[in-house]
Nucleic acid binder design. Sequence first.
RNA 1: CGGGGUGUAGCGUAGUCUGGUUUAUCGCGCCUGGUUUGGGACCAGGAGAUCACAAGUUCAAAUCUUGUCACUCCGACCA
Length: 481
Amino acid sequence: MNNKKYKNLIIKTKIAFYSKIKGFFIFRPYGLKIWENIKYILNKMLIKTKHKNYYFPLLIPKSLFNIEYNNIKNFYKECAIVTHTRFLIKKKKLVIDQKSKLNEELIIRPTSEVIIWDTCKEWIQSYKDLPLLINQWVNVVRLEMKNKMFLRNSEFLWQEGHTAHKNKKEAINEIKKIKKIYINLIKKKLSIPFIYGKKTNTEKFSGAKFTYSFETLTNNGKCIQLATIHFLAKNFSKAFKVMYTNKENKKEYVWNTSWGISTRLIGAMIMIHSDNKGLIIPPKISPIHIIIIPIIKKKYYYKYIKKINKIVKKLKKKLKKNKIKIKYDNNLNITPGNKYFKYEKMGIPIRIVIGKKEIKNNFIEIYRRDKDKKYILKLNNKINIKIINILNKIQKNIYKKAKKKMIKNTFIINDYKIFKKKIINNGGFILSYWDNKKSTELKIKNETKATIRCIINKKKNGKCIYTGKKTNTKVVFGKSY
RNA sequence: CGGGGUGUAGCGUAGUCUGGUUUAUCGCGCCUGGUUUGGGACCAGGAGAUCACAAGUUCAAAUCUUGUCACUCCGACCA
């Protein structure tokens, strides 16, 4: 899908809209509901693992960023900075009151590590206060040059988890836990296939000791980072003096992790699943699961409308228990065909059509968006089970289709000439070996624009794609979105 | 911030090169009334544009010149 198509689809299906400010977008109900569904699902999982939701302030004093240079290194070129508090009105126009200049500038959070650990150090005294499992659902601002709806917004909504642990082992366990949760969310709920691995030193979050990431591929062979998990080690606890007293009555620094997913997932979901007809939304996160469309000729209107309404009412009642959302579009001023196109574009997983034919034969016509095919279902007591089954099948099929595409665009290459050709012409994921040298990584980036998306394993031996040196580091290359 | 491109109704556009029958074209959408409804319905009527903004050239500017702004594509930055 090209950029124009992607953008048009988002605007036409009322997922989002432009705002007056470049890079800032408006979520419309349909788009926001998708985010809220993702949020609901993930939040539920995080409650089970005893993470607690917090809310830390939007504005962070500049000085806090100065404490941990490594943290701001990633963001200092893209900050929104608050410098004044007051306007004057001159000739009915607002003019900044220079007298209201703040002693210290405030930064709209690009991420919240510093304010969280600067605050939480006061809550951590004993080993009994650990682990501290913080999460927050907020917006962050990173003013970037180039924007793309959902994939690169200047303001985006996200979830940021920040945890403090007694020791390394506990922190590593936390990372494993979060990895499992993210896999569940991305694979099972969003139906997006991915590659998981460790970032190289050049690509990692600079405040972290290690960064792990989930990477996926779009139709046009470009990579999208879906989620990241950072092992911060003691970087932040040392900077902010977050310490606890252990059982032996000795002071120790805590071990930290941080991790997040953002509204970018929506962009990835759109990019990966959409087809010529429009969006395809996985049932687990779809705001509407079933759209019901009645078809009635005017002369038979009174004969059938009541029967159709009755069937709809029954279906709604039966499926309510399973949290299946049904929309009944009985606007008779719009022709059925028009509605088909509209809801197909919106990516609603199932469409049910009920008319004279269906009433007479006691069945319904059911359409699967993922397969673009119509089926007939008998109207009986088992209909709700059948529909739920179909929704589950759709969920799995969307993943299967996406995974097939990803595999088709994943190549194992050992020859740099072929590598170069492939990355420039096709893009995609390219599995190769790398000699662990920054200089090699940068040379490849300069020559092909491809970066190492992540390191996938360090077991088998091979030869570096660029230098030919022996190495055991197998990596995935790709071009970033 | 560097190099291209574009700005005409809610959206998409014609007209710009070569200034003048333009009361600014067409399609979609919107409003009113009616007829329709098994894959984007039809008929009739209607509303909606200081042609991005500003200045200049000219008898005359959507059209030419200059400036400003916005958007967009390609680079550098990036979840």
